[in-house]
Amino acid sequence: MDTASQEYRPSADEPYMNPRQLDYFRRKLEVWRDELIDESEQTLEHLRTENWQEPDPNDRATHESEASLELRTRDRYRKLIGKIDAAIRRIERGEYGYCEETGEPIGLARLEARPIATLSVEAQEAHERDEHRRAD
């Protein structure tokens, strides 16, 4: 990747979801996915090499608790990787950056913060209000 590509940040001064922005978000998503996969592989390697034969029951319980936490984290990564892959597919279909409910732009700031976002801030807030009402 050249220096100009590394320094590029999408701007409201350019057309929304133009090819350069789409390429920027695709790369951002791919880097994020690769980092999650690397971390997952490290977790698996750690679990494979862990000494599970601790003589002290407290040490063994601690190892099992840590392993359980690592596996839950890995499962969250797996789900997140699925969302990242779905976002990349939306880029390929020309649907990325637009709210699934309203069709309105999600916005660059929201996508910078959460590149897997599928809803605009307004639609997300409406979903959360509905969830709170159903929970009550």
Rank of each mutant, 00 (worst) to 15 (best):
M1C: 06
D2H: 03
A4D: 12
E7Y: 08
E7G: 05
P10Q: 09
D13Y: 04
M17V: 09
N18Y: 01
R20T: 09
L22P: 00
F25Q: 01
K28Y: 11
V31R: 15
W32S: 13
W32A: 15
R33F: 10
I37H: 07
L44C: 03
R48F: 06
T49G: 11
E50A: 15
Q53K: 11
E54M: 02
P55Y: 00
A61C: 00
S65N: 10
S68H: 01
T73W: 01
R78A: 13
K83R: 15
D85G: 08
D85N: 13
A86Q: 11
A87M: 07
I88Y: 05
R89Q: 11
R93Q: 14
G94F: 01
G94M: 04
Y98K: 10
Y98I: 03
Y98S: 04
C99V: 09
E100P: 02
E100I: 13
E101V: 14
T102L: 03
I106K: 02
R110W: 10
L111E: 06
L111T: 07
E112A: 13
R114C: 13
P115S: 11
L119H: 13
S120D: 06
A123I: 05
A123K: 06
E125T: 14
A126C: 03
R129C: 05
H132P: 02
R133D: 13
D136E: 15
D136M: 13
